[in-house]
Write a protein that binds this DNA or RNA. Structure first.
Lengths: 221, 221
DNA sequence: TATCCCAGTTTTGCATTCAAAATTGGAGCG
DNA sequence: CGCTCCAATTTTGAATGCAAAACTGGGATA
């Protein structure tokens, strides 16, 4: 198994919440499960610690990182900045074909909204945000985005929404698609910020900071 | 020696250009120099690879990452976004005392400009940019900023400037300080973007992409 | 002479081992 | 009964050892 694969597998375990935030990471056990020895496992843990998904305590092992309200706020703040930038760049660089794909994803997502299927809605939602970032054509940006969103994923794509908020989110997504189609970078950037600000408020209001015992037990692949 | 310290030492070696971009990283040698064995060294290299400073080639060792023109452009683009965000947040959160410190740093930097001391000018310049990011009060943002700027540091703070460009940069810094003092987030954000865009043009024009043989041999601590 | 091939060497990646630090559990004491 | 302290055990962090992959260079061949 390649180094990157080990990192990926552990990252998935953490994002799935299989090892809940704050829990000790059982080295020995993971070694057996991944059929590797401690050396490559520990290499992966250090990488994940640098990413912010794992917390290393000297001589006391590693734990799945636990996000405070402040962490959550900071992450959303940065995420807003990254998506806003991605939106601007995407408008300069996106192809017609890419816009069509996003429009299709948007339409599908709206259907899930009408069906009241939150899981599928979130899945489509995430695909759209990621497509915009991809369309920005900046791998550095995409990398940071991936790492930041990984940390808030469970909160962002799991929080239940009130009908009002959900309706607003869908409306915002209409505007997002519209701005993209008009290639209105400034406009898209602005909408994305507002969209994420609302999402952040939602998440924080729902009290989804990962304090003791919060385990969402959800796997949004 | 602590893990973080090992990472830091190797990072410094790379940023100093002691191991020039593209060069092979001599594992054995570094082990002796840092007086550690291969295990912690390799852990550090994987972390630095995740940061983008090191390139890992399976079964072929690691090299100091080499930046192409595209990489440089992408990094500057992201850096613009991060600083713009930092500027906005800083205006909301910065204290009067912090503004005074930045004003003092600015004044000192202008003196170095008048002296024609580019090294000292760059040092002050960097301190100001970092102070703004710090004032944003967002550790996640600060972390990403550190990692992104590390990768372009040699280009950003080493490129020689024409008198015109230098004068313009100083003028932009006047405007930066002014916006900060007025706590004009939008304005500051705008100026920072322009400032960095100009810097990027300068760097790319100077052909400072790290292709073969480019070794700046400079240490701006 | 240039190219190909293959044994010898080096380097890499990982498993294992070992010392040091932390945790545990229970005996002794208040 | 609860607290403290200390030896036994576990876990961590790092050095070493080992198999496999990649490099090297010298000779055979075209």
């Amino acid at each position: 198994m390649l180094h990157e694969e080990v990192v990926g597998r552990i990252r998935a375990i953490l994002l799935d919440g299989e090892i809940p935030p704050g829990a000790r990471i059982p080295e020995r056990e993971l070694c057996e499960r991944l059929e590797i020895s401690r050396t490559p496992l520990r290499e992966a843990l250090k990488v994940l610690a640098a990413e912010g998904l794992v917390q290393l305590l000297p001589h006391r092992g590693s734990r799945a990182a636990k996000l405070t309200d402040k962490d959550m706020r900071d992450l959303f703040e940065v995420c807003q900045g990254l998506e806003a930038l991605a939106g601007e760049l995407a408008c300069e660089r996106i192809t017609d074909a890419e816009i069509d794909e996003i429009a299709a994803a948007h339409a599908a997502m709206v259907l899930h909204y009408r069906d009241g299927d939150l899981i599928q809605y979130y899945r489509g939602n995430r695909a759209i945000h990621e497509a915009i970032v991809t369309a920005a054509g900046n791998p550095v940006l995409a990398g940071l985005y991936t790492s930041v969103t990984a940390r808030i994923r469970r909160a962002r794509y799991v929080t239940p929404m009130t009908p009002q908020r959900w309706a607003l989110a869908v409306k915002e997504h209409d505007a997002i698609l519209n701005a993209l189609q008009r290639r209105d970078g400034a406009g898209l950037s602005h909408i994305l910020r507002a969209h994420l600000r609302h999402k952040r408020e939602e998440v924080l209001q729902a009290g989804f900071a990962e304090t003791e015992g919060t385990d969402l037990m959800l796997r949004i692949a």
